[in-house]
Deep mutational scan, measured.
Amino acid sequence: QVLVIRIKIPNSGAVDWTVHSGPQLLFRDVLDVIGQVLPEATTTAFEYEDEDGDRITVRSDEEMKAMLSYYYSTVMEQQVNGQLIEPLQIFPRAC
């Protein structure tokens, strides 16, 4: 299952990153890619938005798994409803 992660860049749009092994993705892998997209920032975590629009911070593989399972459940709903699949949007955080 292909996963598209949209890395939101403060004040300048976003970069889409296509991942072919989504469920095996590790927290460190995401930080590495964010580091390539935002080389001047030191990113130690990132956030995503849940169904209520609240930002949830991801700082570990466990939290990463929770984010992915949340995302895959929303994708299934979108597929069932015949909607366009939205990329998983993440917001890098420099701490």
Rank of each mutant, 00 (worst) to 15 (best):
E62Y: 08
E49T: 06
Q79A: 09
S69H: 10
C95Y: 10
T18M: 05
I56M: 05
E49I: 07
W17H: 04
T74G: 07
D54L: 10
T74H: 11
C95V: 14
I34T: 04
D16F: 02
K8W: 07
C95H: 15
V33H: 15
Q83G: 11
M64G: 00
W17N: 00
E62D: 10
R59F: 10
E47P: 01
Y48M: 04
M67N: 01
V4C: 15
E62Q: 11
V37K: 05
M64N: 04
S21N: 15
V15A: 02
D29K: 06
P87Y: 05
L84H: 14
A66V: 13
V33D: 00
E40H: 15
D16S: 04
L26W: 05
Q78Y: 10
E40S: 10
F91A: 02
Q36M: 11
M67I: 01
E51I: 12
K8R: 12
Y71P: 02
D29Q: 09
D54P: 01
D61P: 01
E77C: 10
L68A: 01
F46C: 01
V75G: 07
V15S: 03
R6N: 01
L38W: 15
R28A: 14
V30Q: 01
Y48L: 00
T74C: 09
Q78K: 15
R6A: 01
S60I: 03
P92G: 00
V80D: 13
Q24F: 02
Q78D: 11
F46M: 06
F91T: 04
I90Q: 06
I34E: 05
G22L: 05
P92Y: 00
E63T: 05
R28Q: 11
A45F: 15
K8F: 06
G22I: 04
R59Q: 14
S60E: 01
A66F: 08
V37F: 13
Q78T: 12
C95P: 12
S21G: 11
L38S: 10
Q36E: 15
L68E: 02
S69N: 13
P23G: 10
Q89L: 11
L68T: 03
R28Y: 03
Q24R: 09
T43L: 09
Y70K: 04
E51A: 13
A14H: 15
I85K: 12
K65M: 05
S12L: 11
Q36W: 03
I90W: 00
I7Y: 02
T42E: 09
T43I: 09
I9H: 12
L3M: 08
G82A: 07
G35I: 07
L38H: 06
A45K: 02
E62V: 13
P10S: 08
I7K: 03
T44V: 10
D50K: 08
Q1G: 15
M67C: 07
V75M: 11
D52F: 10
I7W: 03
A66L: 13
Y72A: 08
E47V: 04
Q36H: 05
F46Y: 04
D50H: 15
T44W: 07
T74P: 03
H20P: 15
D29H: 08
I56G: 00
E49V: 08
V19K: 00
